[in-house]
Amino acid sequence: MMNRIKQKLQEDNPPAGRAGKLLSIYFTAGYPQLNDTVQIIQDLEKSGVDFIEVGLPFSDPLADGPTIQESSTAALKNGMHTELLFEQLKDIRKTVSIPLILMGYFNPVLQYGVEKFCQKCQEIGIDGLILPDLPLDVYQEEYESTFKKHGLINIFLITPQTSEERIKAIDEASEGFIYMVSSASTTGAKEGFGEEQAAYFNRIASMNLNNPQIVGFGISSAQTFQQATEKTKGAIIGSAFIKHLTENGVAGINNFINQIR
C-alpha cells in the first residue's frame, strides 16, 4: 500500500473550492482529557482535514510556545505516555483513513527504542514522523533505514534562516512534504504574515523543490491559511486548535475547521 501522505499529496482531484490546498492539524495527545485522542482524530477526519499530527507530549518542548507547552504539561499530568498513546491508537485504522503523523521530541522515542517505536507505528498505521530535534545528519547516518523499513516518512523543517544549500539537502532527504516554518519563532508566538514572509514564500517557491511545502507556525484563521498557502501546498494549525480545545473540549471541532477553509 502506498504511504497515505504521498497519496494525499498526489491526489489531483481536490474537493471543489479547496484549490488543492491541504490543511494539517496538530494536537497534543492526552489533552484536554487523557482519552480524547481517538475522538479528536475521528472528528478531524469528518471535518475534512487532510493530515493529522498527533503530538507526543514532552516535559521540555523547547521549540514550542506557551500554548503547546501547557497542553504538553497537562497531557503528562493526565497520565499520557508513549505506550498508552500506542494503546489508544491500536484500532484507529478501523475507523479512519486520513494520513497520521506523530510529532514529538526525540528523547521519548530514543527511550522507547527507535526500532521498536517505528515498528509500533507501522503496526498501527502511522504514516510519518516529525521529530524537530533529530538532526538531518544523525537521521541519515543512524535511522533512515529503520524509518524506511517501517514505511515511515520523516518530515524535516526549514526556516527563513535556513541556507539555500541546506534546503536543497533537506529536499533531497525528504520524501513527503517539507515543513516550512513561517518565521523565526517558537510555535504560537506570532500571528499573521507580513512582507518578510511573502518574500520568503516567494523565494522558496522559486527554488522548484522536489517536495511540496506545507507552512506551519502563525496560522490561526481563514486569512492566514489563505496567505500561507498562496505559494505552497498547504498549512498546519497547532496552537490555535489547542486553544479551541482548551475552550470547547472536543465539541465543535467541525466548526473550528469550517471557519478556516
Partner: peptide, 10 residues
Amino acid sequence: GAFIPEMLYP
C-alpha cells in the same frame, strides 16, 4: 552532538 530543531541550526 547537536540535537537541535532547525530553528536553532543557523
